[in-house]
Structures are given as C-alpha cells and as structure tokens.
C-alpha cells in the first residue's frame, strides 16, 4: 500500500524536475521523484509515530496531499507545456511515446522511452536473476533469512529501489495511477495460477506481455487511450482467471496451499 502511495506522491518531484530542466531529462526526473519518495515515507512515519494518527489515515492523507500539490504545480506553471498536463499525469501518453525519436545522423535509432526503459528492464532482469535467492528469502521468510546471516534490509531496499525506479520511468508512458496496475495486476493473476516463485516470474511476464499486446491493438481498433485499455484488459484477464480458480478448475494440478 505504501508503494501505491509513493507512486502518487512523487508527482511534485517529477513536476519540479520538468520545470527546472529545460527538457525532459530522465536523470533529473529520477532525482526529483526519489527526493519526494523519501519525503513521503518520512511524512507518513512522522504522522504515524510522532503525531499518533492511525496508519491508514496517515498514508491516505500524505499521498493525496502531495498529489494535489503536484497537480497544482502543473496548473500553475506548466500551462502551455506540451510535455506535461493534468491528464498526462493520470494516463500517460503512450500513444505519443513513439514521437520522441532519437535520430542521429539522419538515422532512426529508436524512441526515447525505449532508450530509458530497455536498459532499466535489462538491469532489473539481471538483478532479479542474480539476487533471486535473496529476494526469495526476504519475501517469504525475512526472519529466517536474518538468522542465516542475510542482510534483509539490503534486499528490502533493493526491491523498493527497483520498484521506485520502474515506477518513475514508466510514469511518462502510463501515468501515475495506472502504473500501480501495471505493477500489481499481472503478478496477482499469475499468483492465482502458480505457487512456485520462478514460475510466478515467468507467468507474470507472459501475462503482462499478452495483456499489453491485446490492450494495445484493442485500443487502436476502438480509437481510445492505450494504457487504460491495457489495464482494463488486464482486469478482464484477472477476472477470468479468478473465476477459473474459484470454480475449482486446476491448472498443472498444483496443490492449493495458501502462501502468505
């Protein structure tokens, strides 16, 4: 839930970065978002521990406030700025992403979002494969991991760091609210089907890819915004999977042991 809050509340950081930098510089945006991400956790913690406000309200208050602040910044300073408007914040501009081309010597080398997101993808992939054991232990049995001498704090922050980086980089394409859907819905769908963590990764990846392809072409066909369509399709896939599972249809005969 805190992740959800952070994806909303980094907005002011991103807006300020956009305003300070003359053009959309990913590194500046990342720094701005990181500052506000940390600020969010500090404010939540301050409200909860120092001011004794109950936890759900602390989270809810903090991210709505920071998000509102970001929207106000946009409506004050970003008028007429094509890269940033109120709707872009919500839905992203996936349809326009391919317009931002990288052209060197008159040759097309791909788009800017590919240039930032592909390295991020490879980095995350490498990190997850290399650190699989650490993430696994930390996710399932943090206390056990500690007794084995594994620094769970490191893995926790590594995970949070990756989530933040991916969130911020995807922000431009899919917007602040829907990015949570991209993060949560595919793995949740996969989680309904399998219990093994490795399979979960692979299933989640496949489901996400499938959702994106279906959503993308559906959006083009219906002439509607792309990223909301992808999430809607993901939701339908999740719903079907859910109905499948709850009506006792079993895939791979995996024993259904609730894993917390």
């Amino acid at each position: 839930m805190v992740g959800d809050a952070i994806s909303h509340s980094v907005l002011p950081g991103i807006v300020i970065a956009y305003l300070v930098g003359s053009q959309t510089q990913s590194s500046l945006v990342l720094i701005g978002a990181a500052i506000f991400g940390v600020l969010t956790t500090i404010i939540i913690d301050f409200l909860y521990r120092k001011l004794k406000l109950q936890e759900d309200a602390s989270i809810g208050l903090t991210f709505t406030w920071l998000f509102a602040f970001g929207v106000l910044l946009i409506s004050f300073f970003a008028q007429g700025n094509v890269d940033l408007d109120q709707e872009c914040v919500l839905f992203g501009e996936l349809g326009l992403a391919f317009l931002d081309k990288i052209i060197i010597d008159g040759r097309l080398y791909g788009t800017k979002s590919i240039a930032t997101l592909l390295p991020a993808f490879l980095l995350v992939l490498m990190f997850v494969v290399r650190g699989f054991k650490g993430f696994q232990l930390n996710a399932f049995q943090a206390e056990f991991a500690q007794t084995k001498g594994i620094k769970t704090g490191f893995w926790h922050f590594a995970l949070m760091g990756m989530v933040s980086v991916v969130t911020v980089l995807s922000f431009e394409s899919v917007g602040a609210i829907l990015v949570v859907g991209f993060l949560v819905v595919p793995p949740a769908t996969a989680y309904l089907l399998v219990n093994d963590l490795k399979r979960l990764h692979i299933f989640s990846l496949c489901i996400a890819t499938l959702n994106i392809l279906m959503g993308y072409f559906l959006a083009l066909k219906l002439n509607v915004s792309i990223s909301p369509t992808i999430i809607t399709v993901s939701g339908v896939v999740f719903f079907l999977t859910f109905v499948f599972k709850t009506t006792k249809f079993r895939l791979f005969n995996s024993p259904r042991i609730p894993v917390k």
């Binding site: 989680y191 939701g235 917390k260």
Partner: peptide, 19 residues
Amino acid sequence: SKLSEDTAIAIVTTVYFAL
C-alpha cells in the same frame, strides 16, 4: 483467493479506473 486485501484494493482501484 490467497491475495491480500492490499493487492485486492490495488487491482480494483486501477482496473476500474482504467475502464
């Protein structure tokens, strides 16, 4: 399902909002 309430909230929020 075995999904936690957090996850359920995140799914419902984003999917309905996207729709």
